[in-house]
Nucleic acid binder design. Sequence first.
DNA 1: TGTAAACCGTAC
DNA 2: GACGTACGGTTTACAC
Length: 911
Amino acid sequence: MPTLILIDGSSYLFRAFHALPPLTNAAGEPTGALFGVVNMLRNSLKAKPDYIAFVCDASGPTFRDELYPEYKANRPPMPEELRAQIEPMMEIVKALGFPILRVSGVEADDVIGTLATQAAAAGIDVVVSTGDKDMAQLVGPHVTLSNSMTNTTMNAAGVFEKFGVHPNQIIDFLSLMGDSVDNIPGVEKCGPKTAAKWLAEYGTLDAVMDNAAKIGGKIGENLRAALPQLPLSRQLATIRLDVPLDEAPTDLALRERDVDALRRLYARYEFNAALKELDNKPLPDDVRGANVPAQFRKQTTSDADGTLAMQGVYDCVVDQAAFDAWLEKLRAAPIVAIDTETTSLDPMRAEIVGLSFAVEAGKAAYVPLAHDYPGAPQQLDRDAVLAALKPLLEDPDRPKLGQHAKYDINVFSRYGITMRGVRYDSMLESYVWNSTATRHDMDSLARRYLGYTTIPYDAVAGKGAKQIPFSQVALEQASAYAAEDADVTLRLHETLWPKLATEPGLMRVYETIEAPLIPVLARMEQRGVLIDTNALRVQSNELAKRMHELQQRAYDIAGRTFSLDSPKQLQAILFEELKLPIVVKTPTGQPSTNEEALDAIADQHELPKLILDYRGYAKLRSTYTDKLAEIVNPRTGRVHTSYGQAIAATGRLSSNDPNLQNIPIRTEEGRRIRQAFVAPPGYRILAADYSQIELRIMAHLSGDAGLLSAFVGGLDVHRATAAEVFGLPPEQVDSNQRRAAKAINFGLMYGMGAFGLARQLGIARNEANDYIARYFARYPGVRTFMDNIREQAHRDGYVETVFGRRLYLDDIRARNQNLRAGAERAAINAPMQGTAADIIKRAMIAVDGWLGARDDARMLMQVHDELVFEVREDVLDEIATGVRERMSGAAELAVPLVVDIGTGRNWDEAH
DNA sequence: TGTAAACCGTAC
DNA sequence: GACGTACGGTTTACAC
């Protein structure tokens, strides 16, 4: 059968632009995207199709813009470096002899859809070459998709495998999901899984809509809310198959290529391989790694149509000569990407299995050191290799690059190596560039910024029960995986660093906050905090006893046994068997058994109170007492948390394994957990926390006179607020009024409305409204500030902290009310939460620098507005003074930054 | 056996 | 639906 290849030119140019490094030729003209597209085109010819066409978007509006003015409204303008590559691309495409189709009023997709349909009807096999999943709707018996970026092809079965729906359901599938890039509305919270599930059940979008009432939960409500929008979404997602065209598929034979023009263009853009091929000369061999056994050489280069796969030569270094050669390369390189392979995700328990390095894109090596499996080849001695590398690793003036380098720093520390000079970390570069992106792990970054899918860890080490330690992974696979890690890290840096360089504010955040913080956090994690496991064990037993008693009583009361831990079973007993009133519902519409709900019915039955007590104990025991004891490192007797430096969108740190940032404090029983965080003999715990830091930042940012003077005057701000709102002298404010004022102060920072305040304080909604109105009347600057932030967020799509950290708000222009309102609340909160994060990070860097190498005082923990130290008793005063000075001085605001400090034998006492 | 979702609750 | 940012435990449903 004859074949037709339809190339989605616009899609490829755009993807190649984002996937490839920003190459330029000697004249400084951008060539990266061009290079990608040209290679793809040359490869497409190798299939020797009978017909071929290059289809791209014409300029000007299309019928979709008329249907829906907001279509693609979120698209940023095309970057100049990309725009500059369009004309050259068209010249090359023309010179290659490709028929070019550009039809105004429709998109390239529609032209492709029309041609594919016509060709298939005429018995021609069609391959649509595109990176766009929307095209899956065209797949049929004669039509397949091919994606040269991922080197995959898809027929109808492939579509079903990938999306879980058939090609003829793709339009409905896309309509349900919506598309944030094209700004097509869908069903909120409906992703591919949910969309596929519904379509599997009902078959079509129409049927899903007809049965919308049957779908439960929050997602069902979202679906019903979206019903009016969905027909429009479907129209937008539907590729037209009836565009009037001048050419029939059979008119699309390849024209004769213009060799002279190609030679001139290839030369100009420095596509040397293409130029050589043009002149029919063989390509030179790739540079091969020296002194490397051939069987360990891993070469990832372009295959038939995988031009955009990682290209490079990866060495597996197992002999001294090869290692020496690499050591020389590392010493000579201006920047070295380093990655460790280990036996554990926990750096405090991990042992080094191998090291990988990259010095330029495409040139990387893996040095296996402790692979141990039957038949494993001889490897270099780990201690000898580490000793040889130590000077380089410890030299602060040799710039190093990592992906999540804190992990590697901690691993090296276990071998007596203090890694210094980590100037670059691709994870943090990505985080500063756009903290809203949910994941900054290497696989996600490679996909996002390089358009490349890395070898998944699972693929070499397995997962779940079948997982093997990396030390048992065969050298050949281990090398491919590990060397790629270093290579990809380097390529990510080469992509992200120039981006950061275009935004001096973000660059400053990276250079003055995030990068210097890496070794500070690493030291805190390595140090760990001493835990009194005996105290925890005692408490755990007490809790277990009380829980058991409560459990027995609960069974007696209910007349049967059940799991007190199961909300579902509780719901059956409380609301079905006992018929207690339902006060709160969960987001899925079920009767809630949360604290608020149980509190509300506690006066009608004894079971709710009992459950609340049980829950409190169960939470403490499972989450804290038992968990902490379990996670104590047997080597150090301490818990070594991991701080997440690229998690929270606002710039805050997070903490896990264990999470030290949610240790209880509000109740007496909870504080016993804190009492188990102890100082070693001769030391004391010192806790220093910023007083009302976020409210102070609000005063600074808003410039509100009332709020400023409260802080400058050193007043109790909640009391002062109560005095203003209730029109009383401060000394006549009672505790209830102060509590209300505190709720207002905090609530406003989170964008809370009257509804929320009323609920929080248990008052009528109009009363809450009244409070808020009086607050804004008394603090007009705060209202103006909030209005301005909202406006700025809408205008720019992001908000900033005092130090220039940026938070993008993807939903700020959403048509969905809830999404948009949520984004507005986040916009209000982010400058305050984010600035507080910036300030304490700056303080940590300053305090760490001041403490230097002294071992009589060590910073252990950070809890958002608090730093915790262990300090030798004889220097407590000196340290307290120095810490206070540096924390207060971490920012110059319009109000003083007050720091409260306490000390004690344990964390609880230090408060 | 493993994963994801729902629910709940802790911190700042 | 109504208050921002996190982490994580238990139950439950479900795919493999």
